[in-house]
């Protein structure tokens, strides 16, 4: 196992029922469930991917109970290093929503965020008539906004791993001193770690 591990916070965005969780389930467990219930109590799912000379550990954050009524907190995607913006290739409305999320991420997320636009449910396309979002349209958006672009099927697994590999390749590598791999609790520029054991809890040793 490669010891040089970079953790990447990746968030899922997109309209309800476009298959966000299914893509993750396919990627993490190589599985698919028709009516998947969200995992209770998991802050995020993790999956490691071995790249050429290092390992990327994806921390994949799901929208949890904030999605059903479109009540996502901005904090969810604020310090993400990567995002999957997912739409359903058979639902034009979901592509409009995807455009909205790309705009929102460019405004609110960190500057270097790697965004992958993902058209899911390719398995539903029995003929070209079933397709309601043109590939050209999505490609155009991707070029304009500097996005990675894939069309996938979480059900068959088609192209799913490729999305994450491409993100892994595009993520800028951190210095290998291991100090900055967390991204959430770094200590650069005076940030503090509240989880550090506290030796002041005993009132009789309050350091005075």
């Amino acid at each position: 196992m490669n010891s040089n591990v970079t953790s990447i916070k990746l968030v899922l965005l997109g309209e309800a029922a476009v298959g966000k969780s299914s893509i993750v389930l396919r990627f993490v467990s190589n599985d698919f469930a028709e009516n998947k219930e969200p995992t209770i109590g998991a802050a995020f799912l993790t999956q490691r991917v071995n790249m050429a000379d290092h390992t990327i550990k994806f921390e994949i954050w799901d929208t949890a109970g904030q999605e059903r009524f479109a009540s996502l907190a901005p904090m969810y995607y604020r310090n993400a290093q990567a995002a999957l913006v997912v739409y359903d290739v058979t639902k034009p409305q979901s592509f409009i929503k995807a455009r909205h999320w790309v705009k929102e991420l460019h405004e609110q997320a960190s500057k270097g965020i790697v965004i992958a636009l993902v058209g899911n449910k390719m398995d539903l396309l029995e003929s070209e008539e079933d397709r309601k979002v043109a590939k050209e349209e999505a490609e155009k958006l991707s070029q304009e906004e500097n996005l990675l672009f894939f069309e996938t099927s979480a059900k068959t697994g088609d192209n799913v791993n490729e999305v994450f590999l491409a993100i892994g390749e595009k993520i800028p590598l951190k210095k290998s001193d291991g100090s900055n791999t967390d991204g959430l609790r770094g200590t650069e520029d005076g940030r503090i770690d509240l989880n550090k054991p506290d030796d002041t809890s005993n009132p009789n040793s309050c350091g005075c």
């Binding site: 969200p38 209770i40 109590g41 998991a42 802050a43 799901d62 929208t63 949890a64 109970g65 904030q66 059903r68 009524f69 479109a70 009540s71 907190a73 901005p74 904090m75 969810y76 604020r78 940030r191």
Partner: peptide, 27 residues
């Protein structure tokens, strides 16, 4: 907190949501 005190309610709302809490804003 970085980004202001408004991060605090959002953080606990996220905690609630991943434990099955349902959120309905603008309602």
């Amino acid at each position: 907190p970085m980004y202001g005190l408004g991060e605090l309610p959002q953080g606990f709302a996220r905690l609630s949501a991943i434990y099955g809490g349902t959120y309905m804003l603008n309602t």
